[in-house]
Amino acid sequence: MHMFEYFDLSRQGLDLDSLSQEQVAIDVRDLTLTFGNKRALHHINMQVPKRHVTALIGPSGCGKSTLLSCFNRLNDLVPNCVVAGEVHINGRNIYHRKEEVALLRRQVGMVFQKPNPFPMSIYENLVYGLKIQGIKDRRTLDNAVEQSLRDVALWREVKDRLFESALTLSGGQQQRLVIARAIALQPEILLLDEPTSALDPISTLTIEELITQLKEKYTVLIVTHNMQQAARVSDFTAFLHQGHLIEYSDTDRLFTRPKEQQTEEYITGRYG
């Protein structure tokens, strides 16, 4: 029942149209993206508010994942992907040619649709990013492991088996583990791409609770196909369609009084 409490909390009087500089986590300016000669995103403009949960919804293939991975430049790995426009995080354009991508990815954590723990121990999974930064101090690593596991409510379940293979965890536990793995780097922003689509209802519920708690510390962007989920966990929702940002407003209004007809068709299930 307490899920609906969060629903009410989401309205903190933030108005998307008049966000101050400090309230913006990601500022997307006229972002256009093409794969070869196929345009996947058209002139996207949006401001993602800090320490709130923002949901991206839209039909399959509309560009949600593509937009999400613009924010940590994971698209760089796609050979023929070209990005035009700007994305500002912490006041700097992350597509500036001097941007340090590895540094950016530590600030912007990402979790994928299917849990992808490395075939190592739970502990090694959690300290992977830290070790890459060159952190070797055992105490620091131990603390990071415990803190991040507590953040995702996994500590009690795994504290006695930290050195067992992460693959022995259940699917839901694995997904929480990879969220913890991202959190261990103390990012500012968390990108979640359909984090619950491979999970059972109970695990889904746990992760949803987790997301609503995470926003106390992090800015969360979540892609979801589940409209109820978007309504439950997010403060703001963006609706994408064929690479266009159709509508972006606070979740409550988007689901109760959508401005655009396409949005209404989609959320009422008449799309297609």
Binding site: N72, L74, L77, A102, L103, R105, R106, G109, M110, F112, K114, N116, P117, F118, Y128, G129, I132, Q133, V178, R181, A182, L185
Partner: peptide, 14 residues
Amino acid sequence: PNSLRQGSYALGAT
């Protein structure tokens, strides 16, 4: 699996 490569990159690995 590519998902593991992506997971590693997403944690700031080169």
